[in-house]
Each structure stands twice: as structure tokens, then as C-alpha cells.
């Protein structure tokens, strides 16, 4: 199998040294079909590639963010079959039979309420964690439309924010809850 970049450009334009050419392909690329945001998307990637990098590097769905790679910060949160999941620890093979929703596809009533609340409360600072925060908040309010303060903190614990916007996140979740009730 030819070097995968050769599909894009001839090998000699890629790299200065001939030693570098096309010596790599060990793991065979595989074709996978994913159901993302209501569409079927096909990708060619190595087995074992985390969904996060499929979304970001292959499909251009860069609203989902990379923060730690070990499912510890929540920046990469997407919904898999309706539940918030860490895409950095979800391997492509495990995602093929599922419905995946990313921030780009978060358009239902709960999502709209959450995003509107986020804007009203001016939650964001740097913004890198916020797609993940919003996806988790949508998950929370879908499961539990009227969470208590303690339930919000517990549910959102796994989404780290280095700018420390938690007070506003929790206010926004409560505001979104009220919007949904109305």
C-alpha cells in the first residue's frame, strides 16, 4: 500500500530525503461508516483511532476539543446514543453502530436552551472546554430537567474548566432548566 499522503501529493514533494518515502504503512487503514449528526460519514483510518481524532482531523468537526486524551477533562465530550461520552477514549470500532452527536449537531430544544442560557450568563472565557460543558449540560437536562445544585455539581464534575467558569456554568444550567420548564 502506498504512503497515504501519496494520494494527495507525490512522495518527492513531501519530504526532502528519499529515505523518508513510503516506508511506513504497517497497520492497514480501514474504512468505517459513522452516523454523525444524522448523517452517514465514511472515513479511512487506522483501527484503534480515537473518535476524537476522527472527528477533528478527518471530518473537520473541530467543535469537539482535545484537552487531555485520557478521559479526564471532558473537553472532548460528545453524545453517543444520547449519552455524554468522552470521544478521546472511544475507539472508532466501538462507535460504528452508534448515533453520534457533536456540538455541531446539538440543535434540539434542550441544546438551544442550554446555549441561550450560556450566552445570557456570559459563561465562556477561553472557550476551549465549553463545547464539552454544553454537551454534558444537555445530557444532564435531558435526563433530569430540574436538577438540584448538588446534582449539577456532581454531573458536571468531569468537565474541567481551567478558566474556572463553574459558578456561571451552574447558573446557566439552572437558567436553561427554567427555560425548558417555561
Amino acid at each position: 500500500m502506498a504512503c497515504s499522503l501519496a494520494k494527495v501529493l507525490p512522495c518527492e514533494t513531501r519530504i526532502p530525503s528519499s529515505d523518508w518515502d513510503c516506508q511506513t504503512e504497517r497497520a492497514e487503514q480501514m474504512k468505517y461508516q459513522l452516523k454523525i449528526n444524522g448523517e452517514i460519514r465514511s472515513v479511512d483510518v487506522e483501527p484503534g483511532t480515537p473518535l476524537l481524532w476522527v472527528l477533528r482531523d478527518e471530518l473537520g468537526l473541530t467543535g469537539t476539543k482535545f484537552g487531555c486524551g485520557v478521559a479526564y477533562c471532558g473537553a472532548c465530550t460528545v453524545h453517543i446514543d444520547g449519552y455524554p461520552s468522552r470521544s478521546c477514549q472511544t475507539f472508532i470500532e466501538d462507535a460504528v453502530d452508534s448515533e453520534i452527536t457533536t456540538i455541531e449537531g446539538a440543535t434540539d430544544r434542550v441544546a438551544k436552551a442550554v446555549q441561550a442560557a450560556w450566552r445570557e450568563k456570559d459563561v465562556v472565557q477561553c472557550g476551549w472546554c465549553q463545547s464539552g460543558q454544553v454537551m454534558s449540560a444537555i445530557g444532564l437536562l435531558t435526563e433530569n430537567p430540574k436538577p438540584s445544585d448538588e446534582e449539577i455539581k456532581e454531573y458536571m464534575y468531569g468537565n474541567a474548566c481551567r478558566c474556572v467558569t463553574y459558578l456561571r456554568i451552574n447558573e446557566a444550567v439552572k437558567l436553561a432548566s427554567r427555560k425548558l420548564e417555561a
Binding site: L61, T62, T102, E104, Q115, W118, V124, G127, W128, V134
Partner: peptide, 12 residues
């Protein structure tokens, strides 16, 4: 920046 940072469209 509170709109594009809540719908994933802000470009980092």
C-alpha cells in the same frame, strides 16, 4: 465571543 464559543464555531 459567547456565541461562537458555545456552538463550536469559534476557530482556535
Amino acid at each position: 465571543d459567547n456565541s461562537n464559543k458555545t456552538d463550536g464555531t469559534a476557530v482556535f
